[in-house]
Amino acid sequence: MTSVAESAAGRTGAGGTVVDGARREDIVGGAGGAGLAFRLERAGLGYGRDAVLREVELEVAPGEVLVVVGASGSGKSTLLRALAGLLPPSEGRILAGGREVTGPSADRAMVFQDDGLLPWRSVRRNVELPLRIRGVARSERGRAAQEWIEKVGLAGFARHLPRELSGGMRQRVQLARALVGAPRAVLMDEPFGALDAQTRAEMQRLLLEVLRETSATVVFVTHDVEEALLLADRVAVLGRTGVRAVLDVPVGDEARTNLRERILEEL
């Protein structure tokens, strides 16, 4: 079994940033860096007595793509919302970059399943939003937004409203909006779950392509095991009782077939 850092390096290596084991320890220790590390310590997530998840122990290495798979109702979204800081843990703690998560931050951008765009803002103004919030000058944010709109393949659609776009195009906009502010982590909540198979495959390719340019940590939630195997450095399997296994995604078809069976077993 390869180490977390090696599998993370498998992706980031292509972009030029190699995260080796020693440096990873530094970053987890809170020294900062490009990708954000997460650590959940005996975290209880959910409301009141009927906590959706209890005593969650999970580590996410900086720069890796961790895909969380689980059946519906297993608390995948809850886990993601907790990492985003939208849902404070009822017990235990959540650390991001060594610091306790107390609320949402621009460091941890989120991509929602659908309808996360502000419908009264055009594509460009949606993508510009994080920069506007940060007080970036108008010309600068227009340039950056345009660059990302082109990167996600929406050149020519900058002035469209979200309702004038298809579901896949709207998710492209969300992706651009999440990445334009160069966050240290991107949290994706079944972003392709509502798309047809063909569009989903395209979006997955686009995501892999775009992620090569960033060293941000990615936590990606899905119920689709194939999607997990395609995108992940590591896969976390979520069952009714919490995180059941965290598995490295190996190279090679046979090894992947074995892993797929292992995941389906854990589910």
């Binding site: 990167k151 020519g156 469209h160 309702r163 004038e164 776009l165 195009m169």
Partner: peptide
């Protein structure tokens, strides 16, 4: 990547309007 690759495959944004028409 170049061009909106979703356009030919994805569902059109509204009844009777394909993305190109909307664009125009």
């Amino acid at each position: 990547m170049a061009g909106p690759r979703t356009a030919p495959h994805s569902p059109s944004p509204g009844p009777g309007t394909d993305p190109a028409t909307v664009s125009d």
